[in-house]
């Protein structure tokens, strides 16, 4: 058993868990934060995306015990009914989902992705490695390629993200 201190959405938790417990399973099964979803459990679908120390990662591909002392933000920490984050509201306004299972991962991923773009990070589709001025639809799609949507709500997901990121279609 490993003892790990995690700060999740501003609240400190002391976790006692087997070393094999992933951050995803710690959040869902030990801390009761079931907003983060388990899809493939192998880093291929992005449903488990959370923000750790400001960076989006796949919580299924990291052990909870590797995050002693880390600050973690999950979908529950971004907003709540009546007090939605800009991206959460935009996903509602643009119907950026159908079944909704991938949505928490999409929104956590997009939240951090917009910060990456603001920091000037280029992407595979950026013509100039200095980074894009605004997020085009092509840029949004490439930067969000780690989040799959089996309902294929992609056009509306891109619309929602573009509204918040202030890009051009």
């Amino acid at each position: 058993m490993e003892t790990t201190e995690l700060t999740v959405n501003g609240k400190r938790h002391e976790l006692e868990a087997d070393s094999r417990v992933t951050l995803l399973d710690a959040l869902r099964n030990h801390l009761g934060l079931t907003g983060t979803k388990k899809g493939c459990d192998h880093g291929q679908c992005g449903a488990c995306t959370v923000i750790v120390e400001g960076r989006r990662i796949n919580s299924c591909l990291t052990l909870a015990c590797m995050h002693d002392g880390d600050e973690i933000t999950t979908i529950e920490g971004l907003g709540e009914p009546g007090n939605l984050s800009d991206l959460q509201a935009a996903f509602v306004a643009h119907d950026g989902f159908q079944c909704g299972y991938c949505t928490p991962g999409q929104i956590c991923s997009a939240t951090a992705m917009i910060e990456e773009a603001k920091a000037g990070w280029p992407s595979f589709v950026s013509d100039d490695l200095a980074g894009p001025d605004a997020l085009s639809d092509e840029e949004i799609s490439e930067r969000m390629s780690g989040n799959l949507c089996r309902c294929a709500a992609y056009p509306n997901i891109v619309n929602a993200i573009r509204q918040v990121a202030g890009g051009k279609s």
Binding site: G46, N58, F124, A130, M144, S145, G146
Partner: peptide
Amino acid sequence: RQVYPVLSRAILAGASGQLRNK
């Protein structure tokens, strides 16, 4: 990015944003 652009491009061609962060 400035002097080894082939390296930036190659890394950005791989995996996803989440995986590259980790």
